[in-house]
């Protein structure tokens, strides 16, 4: 075998070896590319999740700050109701009446403080039209004297906090006298406890 031939052979094997190596490396690159893409995807996903969670968090926080006084005011409402109820009484005794006037002012001050925090009292009067969005019908009165669905008795006023109803006024509502149940078997199937 001539030297030249040997040389060519050597070159061929070398080329083959290089080719194999290139193929191997190319496969490796593909694999790494895929891996990198997968990581990149996961990373972006986590970043997006983080971002969404952060936005949600900010939204939640704003919400809690906005309505933070609500649970406290809800606890005060029963006392406010009674207070309001009592000062609306008119007394014949002038001394008593003077006291009531004073208490009316105190109630006004209390309400003013709560109003500055976002509370709104919506006064409900007899004769108003019943509105289930702001009132709670506790009792019905079968009557012909007024239009059906009219407020005929008020226990307390509606309270809103900013844009939210926190306590509907509890009222008595008129209903068509023709609907009055004649006997027990006609009474609508309502569990009183469901009306809480």
């Amino acid at each position: 075998m001539s030297d030249e031939k040997k040389h060519v052979e050597k070159e061929v094997t070398l080329k083959k070896r290089h080719l194999a190596k290139i193929q191997k490396l190319e496969a490796e690159i593909e694999k790494l590319k895929a891996e990198s893409a997968e990581w990149h995807n996961k990373y972006m996903r986590v970043l997006a999740d983080m971002d969404n969670a952060r936005k949600q968090n900010a939204k939640d926080q704003q919400y809690y700050i906005k309505y933070r006084a609500v649970p406290f005011i809800e606890k005060l409402l029963p006392a406010l109701d009674i207070f309001n109820h009592v000062i609306r009484e008119e007394q014949e005794d002038p001394v008593l009446n003077n006291y009531l006037t004073g208490f009316r002012f105190v109630y006004g001050q209390l309400l003013e403080a709560l109003t500055s925090e976002g509370l709104q009292e919506v006064v409900v009067k007899v004769g108003d039209k019943f509105d289930e969005n702001t009132m709670h019908a506790v009792e019905v009165k079968y009557t012909e004297e007024v239009e059906p669905n009219t407020v005929v008795g008020v226990r307390n006023n509606t309270f809103k906090f900013i844009d939210r109803l926190i306590r509907p006024a509890q009222v008595m509502v008129s209903t068509n006298i023709k609907d009055e149940p004649k006997s027990d078997d006609n009474v609508p199937e309502i569990n009183p406890a469901d009306l809480n």
């Binding site: 019943f130 289930e132 019908a137 509502v173 199937e189 469901d194």
Partner: peptide
């Protein structure tokens, strides 16, 4: 769920609040 005389649907809390005045109220 309740339906007002004009056919409007009332839901949830509001439906519960008008239940005694409206026979077109469905509970449970």
């Amino acid at each position: 769920v309740a339906f007002k005389p004009d056919g409007e649907q009332v839901n949830g809390e509001a439906a519960k609040r008008q239940a005694v005045t409206n026979p077109d109220t469905v509970m449970s």
